[in-house]
Design a protein around this nucleic acid. Structure first.
Lengths: 168, 168
DNA sequence: TTAAACTTTCAAAATATTTTGAAAGTTTAT
DNA sequence: ATAAACTTTCAAAATATTTTGAAAGTTTAA
């Protein structure tokens, strides 16, 4: 396979994976493109390569910056903005975990905590089932939360080392 | 908060979370409803409670069965089909992990393996960056894969015990 | 067989999400 | 102050996803 073809394949695959996980396909594709590009790229170059509009490129890049995955770079003497993606996969994974925790896990845990407090007749099967499901899901969510917290602090080698040692 | 209100809240929250993770909102809601319901429910009851059409209910239930989260139950002497969801949260988590691994992680690993094989000029920065990103992501994906495999085999208490012991 | 009871299908409609692109906004150089 | 170079905005258009519901299909009982 040619490098150019391989790049296309990767961008496509990454976009598909993203959309399956609730991430806008274009956003995943722009990120993929930046990941396999050694230099910074301009909005113009991204529009051109991925065949997307200026507005779309601009918004997507802003989102990626909001996710902490891409940074804006300025070159001395130039008006244009350049964009660059951190290539460290462990940093990327952590950054995504961090943001999704903040945006999605934290809010659901807050709701589950609320719902855990609901009182009811101890012998009412309706209440018993509700309560058991809520408290169990809450426990699971909190375990995931703790694990993510550890991951966020950890070094990659230590993290996988510990994990795979235990789980071997 | 009243139990009835709490149920509504949970169904809503679960639907929202699902849609943020690439799971159809209605599917997540039907699952939520079954999770907090002690008895089996008929298509009719699900349609009524969630205010969805027969076609939607039917397709969603088939999907949930396909994900291994819901089972069809027949009652002797009755024509109607009843639906029931396993309430064991650990089983649910494992089942979801298992399906997503099969549907999404496995295919992307297959593509990454392909892309890792692409040959190029060792000093070409384009090639070097592409290659590094691909191989790094591939390694990460394989670590996740191994961890999921362990999770799929494991008992809940052992899994979290080991994890939290190491990460404390 | 027939018909009642129930489930499944799928084209069309509704809804939600994403994308476009031209206009408005901003910054810098002269 | 003006204009060129660039970025941002956002209403409308395009696209994608989800939902509907009536018709077709299936199963069972009599």
């Amino acid at each position: 396979m040619e490098l150019a073809e391989a790049k296309q394949k990767f961008i496509e695959a990454w976009g598909k994976l993203g959309s399956e996980w609730g991430i806008n396909r274009t956003m995943a594709q722009v990120h993929a493109l930046l990941l396999i590009t050694p230099e910074d790229l301009t909005t113009e170059e991204i529009m051109e390569t991925l065949q997307i509009s200026r507005g779309n490129a601009n918004m997507t890049l802003r989102d990626l910056i909001g996710w902490g995955l891409v940074e804006k770079r300025l070159k001395p003497g130039e008006r244009k903005e350049y964009f660059y993606a951190d290539k460290d996969t462990w940093n990327i994974a952590r950054q995504v975990a961090k943001e999704r925790r903040k945006r999605e896990l934290d809010p659901i845990i807050k709701i589950l905590d609320e719902l855990s407090k609901v009182k009811g007749e101890k012998n009412d099967p309706e209440f018993k089932t509700f309560n058991k499901s809520i408290t169990d899901i809450n426990k699971l969510a909190k375990n995931v939360d703790k694990t993510l917290e550890t991951m966020l602090k950890a070094e990659e080698s230590w993290f996988w080392g510990s994990l795979l040692k235990v789980f071997k």
